[in-house]
């Protein structure tokens, strides 16, 4: 069964743009990306949009639908009323290239600043032994499909461009947590790095990142807050501090995780 629906799609580039109206056919079972493709095939061949898998697995098709960040390929048309206008805009936080395509290089640059996984020096390939319970927390974060919607929705940079320099964003906080919780990572300074270099303190745990994550990663509860707590462990915990004073544990255990 097909109906004609009203769409508004942001068309433009770095020099400006506007919401453009389209009436377009919609069939049963379609998602917003299908409609964008239909627009390309019939009314706007040069309409720019990113996509690959069309199954919520690659994280290419992030945009904003009726003002909410979402994957175009996972937003079903039957979530809207038949006479409801559907407005599709590019993600706001990153510079626009054209139409629905934005320049997401911010995220790749920030990813390059995190010290990589550091394997234990004395372990050869094939000798790695890890227990399932020990890898599970990091595995949750490795589900990330890098759609960057958490980065886009995070008000720290969405509403404050000037914070981009000092703030790495939720996608990279889960990367920090993943490495800090990795059973074999040999680095000991990931918490300090998260605080000092990634701007963990900018996050006011308002959880929008968790709300939009299509992989349902509990970004705030399982990564950001634990990382904040791990910083507290080292810097502010009264009992740890006391223990250190008494036992000089910092000297005994320096370097150990």
């Amino acid at each position: 069964m097909s109906t004609t629906r009203h769409f508004r799609v942001w068309r433009g580039d770095d020099e400006g743009g506007q919401l453009t109206d389209y009436d377009v056919e919609v069939n049963e079972g379609e998602v917003v990306l299908d409609i964008i493709h239909r627009l390309q095939a019939t009314q706007a061949p040069e309409l720019a949009v990113r996509w690959n898998c069309k199954a919520g697995k690659c994280g290419s098709c992030s945009a904003e639908i009726n003002g909410k960040p979402g994957l175009l390929c996972m937003t079903r048309m039957n979530t809207f009323g038949e006479d409801q206008t559907v407005t599709v805009t590019p993600v706001r936080t990153f510079p626009v290239i054209k139409d629905l395509v934005t320049d997401v290089s911010f995220n790749y640059e920030k990813a390059r600043e995190i010290p990589a996984f550091t394997p234990p020096a004395d372990l050869k390939p094939g000798e790695y032994r890890m227990q399932q319970v020990d890898v599970e927390r990091s595995q949750e974060f490795r589900k990330c499909i890098e759609c960057f919607m958490c980065q886009n929705v995070c008000h720290v940079i969405r509403d404050h461009e000037e914070n981009k320099e000092a703030f790495a964003g939720p996608r990279l906080f889960i990367r920090a947590a993943e490495l800090d919780m990795h059973p074999l990572d040999a680095r000991d300074d990931r918490k300090e790095f998260a605080k000092e270099e990634q701007g963990l303190g900018f996050c006011n745990i308002t959880k929008c990142c968790t709300e939009v994550c299509p992989e349902h990663i509990k970004i705030t509860d399982n990564a950001i807050i634990p990382m904040k707590e791990r910083v507290v462990d080292r810097k502010y915990d009264p009992l740890t501090w006391l223990g250190r004073k008494i036992f000089r544990r910092d000297q005994l255990e320096s370097g150990a995780k």
């Binding site: 580039d13 040069e46 720019a48 949009v49 290239i97 054209k98």
Partner: peptide
Amino acid sequence: VGGGRKYNPG
């Protein structure tokens, strides 16, 4: 195709 060279899927 029209629309120029900038990110033009067509």
